[in-house]
Design a protein around this nucleic acid. Sequence first.
DNA 1: CTAGAATTTAGATATTTAGCTAAATAACGA
DNA 2: TCGTTATTTAGCTAAATATCTAAATTCTAG
Lengths: 110, 110
Amino acid sequence: MSAVFKALADPTRRKVLELLRQRPMTAGELSEHFPVSRPTMSAHFAVLREADLIEANKIGTSILYQLKLSVLEDALLGFSRLFGIGTGERRAAESAGVARPEETREGADE
Amino acid sequence: MSAVFKALADPTRRKVLELLRQRPMTAGELSEHFPVSRPTMSAHFAVLREADLIEANKIGTSILYQLKLSVLEDALLGFSRLFGIGTGERRAAESAGVARPEETREGADE
DNA sequence: CTAGAATTTAGATATTTAGCTAAATAACGA
DNA sequence: TCGTTATTTAGCTAAATATCTAAATTCTAG
């Protein structure tokens, strides 16, 4: 999981994932969306691969990258659940011995 | 949002947030859970404060840290929604050629 | 006011990271 | 085979990060 969050820490990599949400794209196609060199993009792809967030498939001379949505989903939901955030039940974790209630945010779910 | 993901990239900081989910704790109390020095922990707290994920309140000679769950929630849900993960309807878009000509929104990042 | 406790700031170092250019690899087509 | 295209690997630099020890800050008690 640490690898996933590490990968998500960089804006370029997050945007790559967003692009891949639409459809698989080659390394070159993805690179066109960013103002950095191809080798730099290649390094970003390597980090995303390392985190198992994308999958590479050689197609001729190109490499087609594809989002592994389930991995992203597992990491995000898994972490969110630790805090009662998201699809799961929204549990009031804020009401523990807090001196002053300064923000009663609600209506997330449930 | 970038600051939040940057903050979440470190395991120590993620664990601090988890601890604070249970109840507010002082810097010293939090530090006891980790094998690093107080100044190092203080730096981690600064990153979390910078990302607006925690709030500091001086209590006597101590500093009580408190999780700002809504900020974490907004970041996590906001990003998840970009991928159709979580609260919304999860549609199976994992298979390759989905390619909806739906003009997907992007650039809501950073 | 002085001592002590909790925390942060300062200053230093080692590691990691993001970026670059140039070169290597791989797959194709002529 | 040769040249072209797509991508990665190598090698480098600059900046950011995580860590430490020592010193400064802030607050409370006595």
